[in-house]
């Protein structure tokens, strides 16, 4: 395994009240070489904590973590790893070229390769014209782009990105997607967490849904594609019979504030519509343009909260 996390739990203690806050509970995950794994989850689900434990910034209370066959505390484990923290902050008075040179040198990149790699990445991230400007004059999006270059300048085997799309405009988001897809093409491994579900769905080989510190579901890309064969029926209310039938037929049903969404395979559509008619619920919409991961995500969160 390129990257393995086994039964990891982490609890934080608040400074004054000494209250314990559960951040991660019994988290297990293995990622192979060349795999792209995305973690999605609501705010405070523990996604960043998992990534920080993987990078050795914090220690798990229990469980084992291995990064390229080494413990996270071993500096050599990070030799071939690139990491982008959430809301990265760099040295204000350095320019992008100096920052990337530091990243390359600190990673042990051969000096003769450094400049060409810096130039290539800065061009790719559209920071070429600002490469000699101090980072304090950069916008949030530009800092994010510089951070992505910082993580990737030494061409790492594993890339760990915490909210890589944060603060980026659509062009920047597209750039990140292209970079990750390029990594995949070159057999590199990536683990990232994001709130942009459509991109996660598109890029990842597997996606994990994390809620309240636990990894609730891991979806293969093929499972998501199967789900795309579903149709969505939105009705005004839920009835016991409707709920029973959904459970029996393995259709997804979840209640939102103003309506109820039912998801079923396309071939079950007429059966579902007949049932809705019999139950006298009002059908608001029927469509097949569903964002599959979003629906599964919402359902998983609701289940976890229940």
């Amino acid at each position: 395994m390129y990257l393995s996390i086994k039964d990891v739990s982490k609890t934080f203690t608040t400074s004054f009240t000494r209250k314990k806050v559960l951040a991660v509970k019994d988290f297990s995950l293995s990622i192979d070489q060349g795999e792209i794994f995305g973690i999605v989850g609501p705010n405070g689900a523990g996604k960043s904590t998992v990534l920080k434990m993987l990078m050795g910034f914090i220690r798990p209370d229990r469980g084992k973590i291995s990064l390229l066959g080494k413990q996270p505390g071993d500096p050599n484990s990070r030799k071939h790893v690139g990491y982008l923290p959430e809301n990265p902050y760099f040295y204000d008075h350095l320019c992008a070229t100096e920052l990337l040179r530091f990243s390359a040198m600190a990673s042990g990149m051969p000096p003769h390769k450094v400049q060409s790699q810096i130039d290539r990445l800065l061009k790719l991230a559209d920071l070429e014209s600002a490469k000699n400007r101090r980072l304090r004059s950069y916008s949030k999006g530009m800092i994010q782009r510089a951070g992505i270059c910082f993580a990737m300048v030494h061409d790492p085997d594993v890339v760990v990105l915490d909210e890589p799309m944060s603060g980026l405009d659509p062009l920047g988001q597209r750039m990140v997607v292209d970079l990750i897809l390029d990594l995949k093409k070159r057999g590199k491994t990536a683990l990232f967490c994001s709130h942009i579900l459509s991109d996660v769905e598109r890029i990842c080989d597997r996606t994990g849904i994390m809620v309240h510190g636990r990894l609730r579901k891991v979806l293969q890309k093929s499972e998501l594609l199967d789900q795309e064969n579903s149709v969505r029926i939105i009705v005004d209310r839920q009835t016991p019979e409707l709920e029973r039938k959904c459970r029996e037929s393995d259709w997804a049903i979840f209640t939102e504030s103003t309506h109820v969404t039912i998801m079923c395979p396309r071939e079950h559509l007429s059966e579902a519509l007949t049932l809705c008619g019999r139950e006298e619920v009002k059908i608001i919409t029927v469509d097949n343009t569903v964002n599959t991961l979003e629906q599964i995500f919402l359902k998983t969160v609701k289940e976890a909260e229940a």
Binding site: K52, Y83, P85, P88, F90, Y91, S103, A106, G147
Partner: peptide
């Protein structure tokens, strides 16, 4: 948290 970027390197 600039330290995250530094310590993500093999230091």
């Amino acid at each position: 948290r600039t330290i995250y970027c530094v310590l993500s390197k093999p230091f």
